[in-house]
Design a binder for these strands. Structure first.
Lengths: 229, 229
DNA sequence: TTGTTATAACTGTTATTACAATTTTTAAAT
DNA sequence: ATTTAAAAATTGTAATAACAGTTATAACAA
């Protein structure tokens, strides 16, 4: 299947449908950049790897298509969509708007322990980057942002932001690998976010998050078009 | 099935999968408020009405669950979700943010003929309201807003806004029927939107759209809790 | 009448199979 | 060697049936 990730069997349990277990796996693959743009994800090989029938795999992938994380190309093959300049910019206009909103709502409510955790995550991100452990970097980076956004306690908003991250996931990894050094720049935003939270300054947090998202555009662009098209 | 809408058979054609045809039907039912909050939508009766098997119906409904327009209650029955005060407010915080964004981007690009059409739609809305033709009112109201948002030419943004409308759809109809007279208020916003477009004043259009969304909250609340809980 | 238990009906999920369309491969002809 | 055409393999979709929960109903007991 060449998903780049180690896939093990999923088990049928009453608590969680196979579809959801498979969905979770596929989400991880996308977020971690373990699938590459343009890559096909045919149902049957995936079903074989998960040791299930087509149906739950089909359900999971259809869900991801609905979320814009995958696409149904003409002649109905499911693949990881390519990124265009326009789409990248649009996604980040929306990200800026929604993540800024979430950041603002989160600021008064977020717990001190969560802020401390975010502080730690900044350190762990730097550590991971030093040893080229991109998987860990991506995981910590995700935790950092979603610890903040979850504190806004807006379920629908969180879901929308999640969808947007799923769409940039496959390109984010390429961005880091290409522009590793440039990652210091976003980290400045991260530090300001934590500082803003400690001061309970909603405007500062929102502005810092918006800047973080803003700077991500150029960062991602270098990953998508390394030669500088 | 008691969907309130007239359902006819869907036909298997090469061009469009049954799932998408059924999805379209269900979307209409939700947007037009032809299903009521709390109502169950079991697969088998729907499949019988559409004269298909479970699968395409299941696909369509799962998609709507993913979109937040339907919910999988505990004990996995699919139903129209109830609206809470918190959810209503959250949805409109997001709506305001995203529809404001779309409005701003649309203003410089929207064609004169589209603006004219929007002007017409305001009239048609008033007409429909006079004769209690709520179906027409809802359809025209939808056209009015999405003519604007489509002009922004942001596919992902449009998709997100569409999702949000799908979630408020079932409650919008109740709102109109309950607070019919109060509908003059939103119309003021509509008129300002068109005026702003003619002047190509992005800020004015954005502000008017944001006010329209803002005023929709109270309006919808009267529909959801008519007694004034 | 009320509470409990067994039975039946109904729910979405999953597996299997068949299908139609597309893509790839193979073979033949130029 | 290149082009064309036929055949095989691969794709997602859809139908059917079996499954495992849950909910409703009915029968029985107190």
């Amino acid at each position: 299947m060449q998903t780049g990730a180690t896939l093990t069997k999923v088990k049928r349990s009453a608590s969680e449908p196979l579809r959801d277990q498979i969905l979770q796996r596929c989400r991880m693959m996308l977020m971690a950049g373990h699938v590459v743009p343009g890559q096909k994800l045919p149902l049957r090989p995936l079903a074989e790897e998960f040791d299930t029938s087509l149906m739950p795999v089909r359900d999971a992938l259809n869900r991801l298509v609905a979320d814009g994380a995958l696409e149904l190309s003409s002649s109905r093959t499911i693949r990881v969509p390519d990124m265009s300049d326009e789409r990248l910019i649009e996604l980040h206009e929306i990200r800026r708007s929604l993540e800024g909103l979430a950041a603002e709502y989160a600021t008064p409510h977020i717990s001190v322990s969560s802020i401390d955790r975010m502080q730690e995550l900044i350190g762990e991100m730097a550590e991971a980057l030093k040893v080229d452990d991109f998987d860990t970097y991506i995981a910590r980076h995700f935790s950092f942002h979603f610890t903040l956004y979850a504190a806004a306690e807006r379920e629908t908003l969180l879901g929308l932001i999640d969808r947007l991250w799923l769409q940039v996931g496959p390109y984010f990894r390429q961005g880091i690998e290409q522009a590793k050094t440039a990652c210091e720049n976003p980290n400045v935003a991260h530090i300001k976010i934590v500082a803003g939270l400690k001061a309970r300054d909603s405007t500062m947090v929102r502005t810092s998050v918006e800047y973080d998202v803003f700077s991500a555009v150029d960062f991602l662009r270098t990953g998508i078009w390394p030669k500088g098209q």
